[in-house]
């Protein structure tokens, strides 16, 4: 179970998404770059040329390595590319949230959490 230390310092959101989603969310003010020595960004822009391994690496760094992130936002069509990773991710912190993008409207059937909800209620 989650202890206080688990989420006390988690004060940022992270985002993995296409250019438009990332731009919009950064405009809202969630973008953060850590202090110069390592300068880690809390966002990743994914386009057609981005390797799946790069997405996985970013997902891993946001969910496992960094302890200051409370919510990871990821575009649903990108989540599809690393679906196995998202489905096997069950920790409470940080929370992984699938969000729609401009070209890909939201599909509740694909969402890992909603699928878990459905399974629980035996539908």
């Amino acid at each position: 179970m989650a202890s206080t230390a688990d989420y006390k310092d988690r004060q940022f959101l992270a985002v993995i998404g296409d250019e438009d989603s990332v731009t919009g969310l950064l405009l809202a003010g969630i973008g953060h770059v850590t202090d110069p020595p390592d300068s880690q960004k809390n966002f990743l822009v994914v386009d057609n040329k981005t390797e799946t391994s790069a997405i996985e690496a970013a997902f891993e760094s946001f969910t496992e390595q960094r302890k200051d992130i409370g919510i990871v936002l990821i575009n649903q069509h990108i989540a599809e590319k690393i679906r196995h990773r998202i489905d096997t991710y069950t920790a409470a912190f940080p929370t992984v949230l699938e969000i729609p993008s401009k070209e890909h409207p939201y599909d509740p059937e694909k969402d890992s959490v909603l699928r878990r909800v459905r399974r629980l209620f035996g539908e």
Binding site: Y7, K8, R10, Q11, F12, L13, L26, A28, G29, I30, G31, H32, V33, K41, N42, F43, G70, I71
Partner: peptide, 10 residues
């Protein structure tokens, strides 16, 4: 983007 303006509290 440098410093997050939008932050979380639990």
């Amino acid at each position: 983007a440098r410093q997050a303006r939008f932050r979380l509290r639990t």
